[in-house]
Amino acid sequence: MEVKIGVQNVAREITFETDESADEVVKAVTAAIENGTPLTLTGEKGRQVLVPAGVLGYVQIGESERRGVGFGNI
């Protein structure tokens, strides 16, 4: 699952892949906002991403896009 996190007053978004389901990510985001605690998610390679809930601009959740290699791929 690909997750993109927009942080207030920061030009670049945080983008990473996670093994968590979309429902798990939504629950983590909702809990962080409601409780005022940092949003904590774990990426595919085991790295943790922590973002303070107060600076979240948006969280976009979607399937990973697999790109083909070579000519003729559409």
Score class of each variant (00 low, 15 high):
1 M>N: 04
3 V>N: 02
4 K>W: 04
4 K>E: 04
5 I>M: 11
5 I>L: 07
6 G>H: 14
7 V>F: 05
7 V>D: 05
7 V>W: 01
8 Q>C: 02
8 Q>K: 07
8 Q>G: 12
8 Q>I: 08
10 V>Q: 09
11 A>Q: 11
11 A>W: 14
12 R>C: 14
13 E>P: 07
15 T>I: 10
16 F>R: 03
16 F>H: 00
19 D>E: 15
19 D>T: 12
22 A>M: 05
23 D>V: 13
23 D>P: 10
23 D>W: 06
24 E>D: 15
24 E>A: 06
26 V>F: 05
26 V>A: 06
27 K>D: 01
28 A>Y: 00
28 A>V: 00
31 A>S: 07
32 A>W: 14
32 A>M: 06
32 A>Q: 11
33 I>D: 12
34 E>L: 04
34 E>H: 09
34 E>P: 10
35 N>C: 03
37 T>W: 10
37 T>V: 13
38 P>W: 08
38 P>Q: 01
38 P>C: 15
38 P>A: 03
39 L>P: 08
41 L>P: 00
42 T>I: 14
42 T>L: 14
43 G>N: 06
44 E>L: 15
44 E>I: 15
45 K>N: 11
46 G>P: 02
46 G>E: 02
46 G>H: 14
48 Q>W: 07
48 Q>K: 11
48 Q>R: 04
48 Q>V: 05
49 V>M: 05
49 V>L: 06
51 V>Y: 08
51 V>W: 11
51 V>E: 02
51 V>Q: 04
52 P>L: 09
53 A>L: 14
53 A>G: 12
53 A>D: 00
54 G>W: 00
55 V>A: 02
57 G>M: 03
57 G>A: 11
58 Y>S: 09
58 Y>E: 05
59 V>D: 01
59 V>E: 01
59 V>W: 06
59 V>R: 01
60 Q>R: 07
61 I>L: 13
63 E>L: 13
64 S>T: 09
64 S>V: 12
65 E>M: 10
66 R>D: 01
67 R>T: 11
67 R>W: 15
68 G>Q: 04
68 G>W: 12
68 G>T: 11
69 V>R: 13
70 G>P: 08
70 G>N: 06
72 G>R: 03
72 G>A: 08
72 G>E: 12
74 I>Q: 10
74 I>F: 11
